[in-house]
Amino acid sequence: MTVKNKFTMTLDAKSANESFARACISAFAAQLDPTLEEISDIKTAVSEAVTNCIVHAYGETFGKIYISAELTDTNIIKIKIRDKGCGIENIEKAMEPLYTTVGGERAGLGFAVMQSFMDNVKVSSRVGKGTTITMSKKISRRFNING
């Protein structure tokens, strides 16, 4: 499996950038010729991860979000979303559906959505250092050029 293409970008952790991050990932993933449903799944998962950086990792503080993605010759998109925020004390707990530390209008479904819309989701985190989400999805080719 070799990497065909790759991009990296750094964003300010501002909520206005949630739609920008989705638009970038969807334009990049388009190279794998995904279905509309696959694109929507990827956009949603990225939106959840980026929102987590803004709402949880940085909260009231200012920070950057580091996004990278690669496309493989086996038609897999791998996405990495990293922050240098507060980190997650208990990853298992954080990933439980409906669990949220901020309450109010947050549903506590961010990780559940990532896991159900992507094939693979990995979370690594260190308190006070930050969190990295790595996720991947195999894209079915809509048109097979080789017949």
Partner: peptide, 13 residues
């Protein structure tokens, strides 16, 4: 044309 779990939060609220 797009909704993430923030929409779920909106409905639940």
């Amino acid at each position: 044309n797009f909704m993430d779990s923030s929409g779920i939060g909106l409905v639940m609220g």
